[in-house]
Amino acid sequence: MTETTPASAEPPQSTEPLLTARGLTKEFVSRSPLGFRKGAVTAVKDLNLEIYPRQTYALVGESGSGKSTTGRLLQGLLTPTSGEIRLAGQVLDARSKESRPLRRDIQMIFQDPHSSLNPRRRVRHILEEALRIVGQRDRSIIRARVKDSLEAVGFSQEHAERFPHEFSGGQRQRIGIARALMVEPKVLICDEPVSALDVSIQAQVLNLLRQLQRERGLTYLFISHDMSVVRYLADRIGVMYQGELVEENTSEGLYTAPQHPYTQKLLASVPIQHPRQRQQRDRLPENADQV
């Protein structure tokens, strides 16, 4: 693993995209108790994405912009209303049994480290379960994989015998990552993985994610509202606004030359790094939050 330079340096066109979405649309329909259609909300509208192997693609946007829904659609937790998702060229259909083994290659990390682990089960069982679900019965393989996953996130095996409540928020998030690593996925969908963590713990988890990408060649879809974190981690960034992908560019390009007005507003809102920047700061237009 000598290649540690950020992948944005190399042209992504050199390889085939690993995960693609074409015309992805998701409507949430609310129904009356008798089953009649009452109304529909389009959470994601005609979204096209290409995520290249070993890269980090970040989706940014405010709450309600559809970025989390997109993550869940790509993972298969939600079924798209229309559109097509492909992993390494093969079509993923959330409903069909054939694409189940494919879906295994896409795992997810969740925002809230407190509710994302079952409080009544030991860490060992939480991790082993990931393999049992996919039909692995061999105890020695399971045991080896638990050890490997725990070590990958900086824990030793003795931690496996504990319950989630014995860990701090950052440690739980690392257990969540270990759980995702159990089935050796190709893609990790990280839904706001550090936004619920303390500042000093955020950096630990971000470094861990980068290290795992280097060591295991993982591809990330990183969903976040934090522009600074995304700038640090991502190779490409997609900006979502009201269910649509309004701008997409390399991390560098997006920050130096934002095109869409929403992207510009988003970047202007990022808190400054030093109080002396207060004067230079672009002030926002009045009442701009009426959206």
Binding site: T4, T5, P6, V199, S200, Q202, A203, L206, M227, S228, V229, R231, Y232, L233, S251, Y255, L267, V270, Q273
Partner: peptide, 10 residues
């Protein structure tokens, strides 16, 4: 440890 827009991401 707080990443900023200027943080060196290499």
């Amino acid at each position: 440890s707080t990443p900023s827009l200027e943080t060196d991401n290499s």
